[in-house]
Amino acid sequence: MSKAAPAEAVERSRLDPEPIPRRDFLGLAATWSALATLAFAALGMLRLPKAAVLPSPSKKFRVSLPESLAPGEPFLAPGRPVVLVRDGLGVYAVSRVCTHLGCIVQPSPAGFDCPCHGSRFAPDGAVLKGPAPKPLQWLAVSSLGAGSYVVDEGAAVPPGTRVKA
């Protein structure tokens, strides 16, 4: 130890002690570990309300198109927010869940209208008016034969995708 150090120690008062960096380090380490532990515990608690299994009903359903359905005429799947259309190229399904805030759009002469915030969609789902940020989703359809189809509400496909009737 150098000779200057004791002289400095004498000048310091009891209320203004010599700083001891290793104690600061221990204090800071303890504070930050406590904060990190609390933050981690809070995140861990948030893990509980984030469900591992979503208890919603199956997204797949089966539907039969009537023989009398005219080409291009929308068919509302019973009990499901989906519309099916059969035209010259095949069968496709469009979701009726508005891409804005999830209301169910209703068919209109020009396509679909949303009752909640006024979005309008063309028959192929393209946005014509209103706040909807995206076109209505086209959904995966597979044919079971004899006019029966399986639609998967959880599987979006690119617009224009059809399955052979």
């Binding site: 009990g79 927010p81 209301c103 169910i104 009752p115 909640c116 915030h117 006024g118 209103g130 706040p131």
Partner: peptide, 29 residues
């Protein structure tokens, strides 16, 4: 009825100003 929203589907009065805003943009409003 999860298949048919009311038309118009209006929130209570104190949220209708917000509903007017979300009718322009969901995120911004």
């Amino acid at each position: 009825n999860p298949a048919v929203p009311e038309n118009p589907a209006k929130a209570p009065w104190y949220f209708l100003g917000l509903q007017e805003l979300v009718a322009h943009s969901a995120f911004m409003g």
